Simulated scan of single mutants.
Amino acid sequence: MAERVKQRPSKARGRPPLADDDLVDEIKAIISEMPTYGYRGVHAILRRKARSEGRPWPNAKRVYR
Rank of each mutant, 00 (worst) to 15 (best):
A2F: 02
E3M: 07
E3T: 05
V5I: 12
K6G: 08
K6W: 01
K6M: 10
Q7W: 01
Q7L: 01
Q7H: 03
P9N: 15
P9S: 15
P9V: 13
K11P: 00
R13G: 07
G14A: 00
R15H: 11
R15C: 03
R15Q: 06
P17I: 00
P17S: 10
L18P: 01
A19F: 04
A19T: 07
A19Q: 14
D20N: 09
D20L: 15
D21F: 08
D21N: 09
D22Y: 06
L23I: 04
L23F: 04
V24Y: 10
V24K: 14
D25M: 12
E26V: 00
E26R: 14
I27R: 01
K28T: 11
K28P: 00
A29C: 03
I30Y: 05
I30K: 03
I30M: 02
I30F: 02
I30H: 02
I31R: 13
S32N: 09
S32G: 03
M34N: 14
M34I: 03
M34R: 15
P35C: 02
P35H: 05
P35T: 01
T36N: 12
T36R: 12
T36H: 11
G38P: 05
G38S: 07
G38W: 09
Y39F: 14
Y39D: 05
Y39K: 09
Y39R: 10
R40T: 13
R40F: 10
G41V: 10
G41L: 09
V42H: 06
V42I: 15
V42Q: 10
V42W: 07
A44H: 09
A44I: 00
A44L: 08
L46N: 07
L46K: 09
R47H: 10
R47D: 04
R47E: 06
K49T: 14
A50D: 09
A50N: 05
A50S: 14
A50Y: 01
A50T: 03
R51A: 13
E53L: 15
E53Q: 15
G54V: 06
R55L: 07
R55C: 02
R55E: 03
P56N: 02
P56A: 07
P56E: 07
W57M: 05
W57Y: 15
N59Y: 07
N59Q: 07
A60H: 13
A60M: 05
A60D: 10
A60R: 12
K61Y: 10
K61T: 09
K61C: 03
R62M: 09
